[in-house]
Design a protein around this nucleic acid. Structure first.
Lengths: 335, 335
DNA sequence: TACATATATGTAAGCGCATACATATCGCCA
DNA sequence: TGGCGATATGTATGCGCTTACATATATGTA
């Protein structure tokens, strides 16, 4: 390549990177040679000296969870527009897998990792940071120590709860996410606080912990039905699930018991995944700007890489109430 | 690191890789030093000499299409179990994005790319191969030149069509995928051949091309309803969509027109994405082993890397008929 | 004309690793 | 005891690139 153009490797490098002085003529010869040889820079070799790999990792529990593909897409779009590649890492919420991956990413010198934490471990993250790897959290918060992009879960849960209350419900069950996640805790707070503020007593027997997966929603619902008779005003007349997947499970359980949604019990989800608008009854839910979250996370991490010492960045997006058929009965609806 | 252990870098390298001769004592000192310093090999630097990056790319149209996350998961699981990382690349079926990405991957020296092609271009793939990058196609075939993992689309489409025919339908519309994709062509063949073999005349006015997305299914259905009165026996009484997403769109269009599924027109999908079992009516469809496809694709590509010159590998998985409510009316069903 | 600057290019070192090659020690057999 | 093979380790080179530094020419200024 250098010979082909009749110049030194240094000049080639300068020509290709537009750094330093290169005569017009030399540049053209280099470019011509590059084209002729179909030459492509070896990015890995470059990273050896530059320290930058132009790679970021997206570490999340499971792409198969419909919440994440949109986030991933957002990350990827912003990243690729800026010359970055993104590695996809599924942890299954498994501590071991998570730390294995982080080690892998460290030894690959990724520039940054966008992290939907499933086991809250600050030391894990600090290790990355100490290594000079930028980190931004998405969705799953971890206190106020790290850059984060999330939605306002408390507001979202209040939106949901208030909607239910507005419909006349006072006995509202809550199917929570994994208790150790801030995301779950926040949604729970929103639920409880909304109740309180309306003067509705909070009954902890109405709260069951799930794990964000469909089956756990089904299970939780069964447990709930076991403990209470929902045809009884002292039972419950509505359920708010901390994510749509669990809401789907809950609806299924309800139907299996011959209960009608929303007539017998109203169901509210969270996330607004694609399923929500297609299932029957269509699921009322709290929409999160998933794609934007990913996009902004990528933007944030790239910004962070350019100033590692800058002050903490926090992007809190607003969730939105989407009312469909699982909470209010439509009269004269087509379907 | 080398000094810390009191040996040369060569010995460190040998100790860490288990190559060449290293005394037990030296190895232990190296390992101890590594632990003490929290040393991690720089994989990129290594790839400079070894030529291997232990990275594979997964290039597909859009992770947001529910068919792909499962495939991606399969790829990732096998890959990470074998020390590989996977880069995620969305092309949107856009020729430009696709080739941009391939260039990017070349300059990053990925070891292989698992490719769900959207624009069929052999030269594109040959360029990769010439570069020493392994390629295996998933789902989208391209003649018999390359390694591929797919399902038997002809068989699948026949399964679907025969099911409909068995139900008494003779006027079966078909919403096809993009015509340039082998996947679409094969499903179309299966549809037409099944019809033929039952002595049912094939009416090309009943075939409309979509693009695998939900909206296009909706549109196609509208077009179909415009051309035919489906309450007329000479219109159509069933629709087979080449994928579930389009089937969902079709069902929506049907409902909007006040038509009932499956009573007025039966609908059959393809893929068995998560939505299929949750929507109402639940969608009858052809299930593809998505996760396995990804898993096997990763297995295949890693095998290929170890013997670049080996004979072509072709894995054709079998699709499965899943009968739900969109084709047959359930009596006494709970919901 | 003499010298400071801007422009242009090459040389060489180094990034973190693997490895060919040279060297050194040891055990063992003829 | 001389010599060979197995074992162990260091030195040096190169992977493909960037960049500090040296060098060289052109341009401008006093």
């Amino acid at each position: 390549m250098a010979e082909k153009a009749g110049v030194s490797v240094a000049t080639v490098s300068r020509a290709l990177n537009g750094s330093g002085y290169v005569s017009k003529e030399a540049r053209e010869r280099v470019l011509a040679a590059a084209r002729a040889l179909d030459y492509h820079m070896n990015v890995n070799a470059r990273s050896l000296t530059s320290g930058k790999t132009y790679t970021i990792a997206l570490v999340l529990p499971d792409v198969t969870n419909p919440f994440f593909p949109a986030v991933a897409r957002g990350v990827e779009d912003y990243a690729s527009d800026n010359g970055y590649c993104v590695m996809l890492c599924n942890t299954d919420g498994n501590s071991r897998k998570e730390s294995d991956y982080l080690a892998m990413l460290r030894s690959r010198k990724v520039d940054g990792v966008i992290f939907a934490v499933s086991v809250p471990s600050k030391s894990r993250i600090n290790t990355l940071l100490d290594d000079g790897i930028a980190v931004v959290l998405v969705d799953r918060d971890l206190g106020d120590s790290y850059d984060i992009v999330k939605t306002d879960n408390i507001a979202g849960a209040m939106l949901a709860t208030n909607h239910l209350v507005g419909l006349g419900h006072t006995r509202i069950a809550f199917i929570s996410g994994p208790a150790q996640l801030a995301t779950s805790q926040e949604r729970f707070s929103g639920y409880r606080d909304a109740l309180m503020s309306k003067g509705i007593p909070f009954d902890e027997r109405l709260v069951i912990e799930g794990d964000f997966r469909m089956e756990s929603g089904h299970e939780a619902m069964c447990q709930l039905m076991n403990g209470f008779d929902c045809r009884d005003r002292n039972g419950f007349t509505a359920v708010f699930a901390a994510n749509d997947l669990m809401a789907v499970g809950a609806v299924t359980a309800l139907e299996e018991s011959g209960l009608r949604v929303p007539t017998d019990v109203a169901v509210m989800g969270y996330d607004d995944i694609n399923i929500a608008s297609v299932m029957r009854p269509r699921l009322s839910t709290i929409a999160q700007p998933k794609y934007e979250m990913g996009w902004i996370a990528a933007e944030t991490i790239i910004k962070r890489m350019s100033e590692p010492k800058g002050s903490r960045m926090e992007e809190i997006l607003q969730p939105m109430l989407v009312v469909r058929d699982s909470t209010v009965e439509r009269r004269g609806a087509l379907a």
